[in-house]
């Protein structure tokens, strides 16, 4: 007779049907979602830059360079977004020019 250890009770339990896999945020999120995500990130950086300028003007921020760096970050992020947008428009136009 086979010994049954207490660690081996899984075999005794009634088989539950396999649950469908947890639909965690799929790694291959749609392009639209990705785009929206990056839009909101860039917007967040722009808002931060706005806040930094206001803080400097009202004297809450003592360091001028912190404001400048926050603004530079927003600038770089926006430029990256513009590049992505240009690429998308380019791809769209290429497809539209395709002769059928």
């Amino acid at each position: 007779m086979k010994d049954v250890s207490i660690y081996d009770t899984r075999g005794l339990l009634p088989r539950t049907p396999m649950l469908p896999k947890q639909t965690s945020p799929s790694p291959s999120a749609s392009f639209e979602q990705m785009l929206q995500q990056s839009f909101s990130n860039v917007n967040q950086l722009q808002l931060e830059a706005d806040k930094a300028v206001a803080a400097l003007a009202t004297g809450q921020e003592q360091d001028l360079h912190n404001t400048m760096i926050t603004m530079e970050k927003a600038d770089i992020a926006f430029r990256l977004l513009m590049q992505i947008r240009n690429k998308v428009i380019n791809a769209y136009e290429t497809i539209m020019r395709m002769g059928l």
Partner: peptide
């Protein structure tokens, strides 16, 4: 990322300002 370099320099700027 790119911004980490900016943050590190920012800490240096703050230190030198002080």
């Amino acid at each position: 990322d790119f911004f980490d370099a900016l943050h590190t320099s920012s800490s240096g700027l703050s230190a030198q300002r002080l």
